[in-house]
Simulated scan of single mutants.
Amino acid sequence: MSQARRQARRQELIGCHDCGNGVSFSAVACPHCGSTEPAGPVVQSRRELRRLRIEATNDRRLIIVTAVCTGLGAAYGAVMGGGGAASWWAALGYGFVGAVIGVPAAFVINISRSLFD
């Protein structure tokens, strides 16, 4: 093997984060120690961490707004129903309508909040 070829082969290898032995950059695991992250843990930038926090907040807000709208719809249906089984069916129907309204409402809230942040 020529010197240039050996040097190119050596450049393909990185030092395993856990054991320090050479491992291919594209390897799924280190063949020496079995580490599943031979290149080391992923380090995220501040911008990426902020984006992930915003997405998590938006997800929570979506669930909360949808649950509140569903609960209000179900309560309204139960109160306005004719009593007995009719109240249960009205609660289910209005609860579903509340959920259908809650998802787009949460979406609009999330979009409008991201415009002002």
Rank of each mutant, 00 (worst) to 15 (best):
G20I: 14
P31C: 06
A106L: 02
R53A: 11
S112M: 11
L72H: 04
H17V: 00
F25L: 13
V28G: 14
M80A: 14
Q11N: 14
A67V: 03
R47A: 09
L92T: 09
A86V: 06
H17M: 06
A90S: 15
D59S: 13
R46L: 15
I64C: 03
R10D: 10
M1H: 06
N58H: 05
L92E: 03
R6I: 10
D117K: 01
G34E: 11
V43R: 04
I64T: 12
V68I: 12
A74M: 05
N21P: 06
A85G: 04
R61F: 03
F116E: 13
A56M: 04
V68D: 06
E48R: 03
R6H: 05
C19M: 05
E55C: 04
G40W: 00
G71P: 08
A67P: 08
C30L: 09
V100T: 10
L62Q: 11
R113N: 10
F116T: 12
G20K: 14
A29Q: 08
R6W: 06
L115T: 14
W89S: 01
Q11F: 15
R113H: 10
F25A: 12
P41H: 12
A91W: 12
R47I: 01
A74H: 05
G81F: 01
V108S: 09
A29F: 08
G73K: 00
V43Y: 01
I111N: 14
Y94M: 14
A56I: 02
G40Y: 04
I14Q: 14
Q7M: 12
G71I: 11
P104M: 08
S35R: 11
L13T: 07
R53W: 07
P104A: 07
A29R: 10
C16M: 02
S24P: 01
A8E: 09
S114T: 09
G81S: 01
S45A: 04
C30T: 06
G40D: 03
S87R: 05
I101G: 02
D117R: 15
F96L: 08
A74N: 00
A85D: 04
I64Q: 05
